[in-house]
């Protein structure tokens, strides 16, 4: 089962406003690729982060709020905040 299919099973209340921003493109370009292989593109369980060749593209609407990017970015370069009240993923089972 592909990750896209897994995420398709989920219920979200989408916010137009993002709750995730990359603080600076600089470490992603200059250091992280060579030294870490941009781990956010692999550890994120909802495939939020993708390298588009120039920068990390953020699909914040996929986010399941596991909070792993708060520790997983080697440069503390992901500004992840709690989605606004009531928005985001809504687990039915949990």
């Amino acid at each position: 089962m592909k990750i896209e299919e897994k995420l398709f099973l989920l219920t979200y209340k989408h916010d137009k406003q993002t709750h995730i921003t990359i603080r600076s493109n600089e470490p992603c370009v200059n250091q992280c690729g060579a030294q870490w292989g941009r781990p956010c593109t692999t550890f994120c369980p909802a495939n939020v982060y993708n390298w588009d060749g120039e920068k990390i593209a953020v699909s914040y609407e996929n986010c399941v709020e596991c909070t792993s990017c708060l520790t997983g970015c080697p440069y503390q370069n992901i500004d992840w905040r709690l989605p606004r009240g009531g928005f985001g993923v809504q687990y039915r089972n949990g």
Binding site: K6, L7, A46, C66, T67, S68, Y91
Partner: peptide
């Protein structure tokens, strides 16, 4: 049948 996928720290 997979009915939900979840992740948490």
């Amino acid at each position: 049948q997979v009915v939900e996928y979840l992740a948490h720290a």
